[in-house]
């Protein structure tokens, strides 16, 4: 016949985190792994509720309450730190001799293994804890490898976008493409005209009708610009509402002035968006490569077109001016732009 000591030995192996409490709610013995969690504690004789705090069900206060939970899932934690959370189940012992409570870590097992330096010997071989730890580590390692891949792909995507030559909103060339084209024209000594176009009242559209309306305007503006120019010309969006048009082998100011006038007129036609009409206009400034003696410099030409554009804006907007020597951004304008 098995006695209590034999039973406890079996319990130590099968359920190394069990506790036996007597009818008064005092601990009689605990399994080896549970003991390991508080190695300096003298368990025997201590009241179960002195060591553990019942978190669910809440109303369990006395040994009688505890015994009534038989067979249901208990949530408890150590009263002192580290307050490791535990799951448990109680089975009453025969003849009111107390109860057997089996405990396990539940989801807190990862911290517990670290906090208490547990090894596989602390778990019963049929316990799946070791497999779970394995799985957590394997998943973390696999996730890390995936994360690294995502980071590299993200970097590659950004690099590819930076290298792209197209403005994604309008389908026009972007500033980078414009730089390449200017470089090519200057390198081959080809004459060209450079027109800087800036929308007027675009900010008002954005502010009153929203960015989606602004985007619709920009797309419409891009279409107009492409329609007004030849296949061999370059239309680039170089800023929020700024555009540069490069006319290859065009030196005649009369042609350019006429084109600019037509362009501004077409840009002033309202763009319908969401039942409203978006109205913008444009100012433009143009310079010619032939006006630059010696080596033509892309930055210098962009600056000239920019000065002409500012002159056009100051002259009342919605107009086009050619660059003239001596043009400069005057003081109030620079101050307003915060440039010094």
């Amino acid at each position: 016949m098995m006695n209590d000591a034999d039973l406890l030995k079996i319990m130590d192996l099968l359920c190394p985190m069990h506790a036996v409490v007597d009818a008064a709610g005092r601990l009689v013995s605990v399994g080896p792994t549970l003991k390991k969690l508080r190695p300096d504690l003298e368990w025997a004789g201590k009241r179960f509720f002195r060591i553990f705090d019942m978190t669910r069900p809440r109303r369990v206060r006395s040994m009688d309450d505890l015994v009534k939970t038989a067979g249901t899932k208990l949530h408890l934690q150590f009263r002192d730190s580290p307050q490791t959370g535990l799951k448990g189940m109680l089975i009453p012992l025969p003849d009111g001799q107390g109860a057997l409570i089996n405990l396990s870590f539940g989801i807190s097992v990862l911290e517990a293994v670290r906090d208490y330096d547990l090894t596989s010997a602390d778990f019963s071989p049929t316990d799946l804890t070791i497999e779970m730890l394995y799985l957590v580590e394997a998943k973390s390692a696999a996730m890390e490898a995936s994360r690294q891949l995502n980071l590299r792909l993200q970097g590659a995507k950004i690099a590819a976008e930076e290298q792209a030559f197209t403005d994604t909103l309008t389908g026009l060339k972007n500033r980078r493409a414009m730089d390449h084209i200017l470089e090519r024209l200057i390198g081959s000594g080809t004459d060209f005209a450079l027109m800087h176009v800036d929308l007027d009242f675009f900010k008002e559209v954005n502010d009153t009708l929203g960015h989606a309306a602004g985007d619709a305007v920009l797309q419409s503006v891009a279409r107009v610009m492409v329609e007004c120019t030849r296949q061999s010309d370059t239309v680039a969006r170089v800023g929020g509402d700024e555009f540069v048009i490069i006319f290859e082998r065009v030196n005649e100011t009369r042609v350019l002035a006429g084109l600019a006038k037509r362009l501004i007129r077409l840009l002033e036609e309202p763009v319908p968006y969401g039942g409203k009409m978006c109205k913008v206009s444009a100012s433009a400034g143009t310079t010619l490569s032939t006006w630059n003696s010696g080596t033509v410099d892309a930055a210098a030409m962009l600056h000239q077109a920019d000065l002409a554009l500012y002159a056009a804006k100051r002259a009342g907007r919605s107009q086009h001016l050619f660059y003239e020597e001596g043009m400069q951004k005057d003081e109030p304008e620079t101050a307003e732009n915060g440039v010094h």
Partner: peptide, 8 residues
């Protein structure tokens, strides 16, 4: 081999 050495 420390079971809990892996930082999460």
């Amino acid at each position: 081999f420390d079971l809990g050495a892996h930082s999460l």
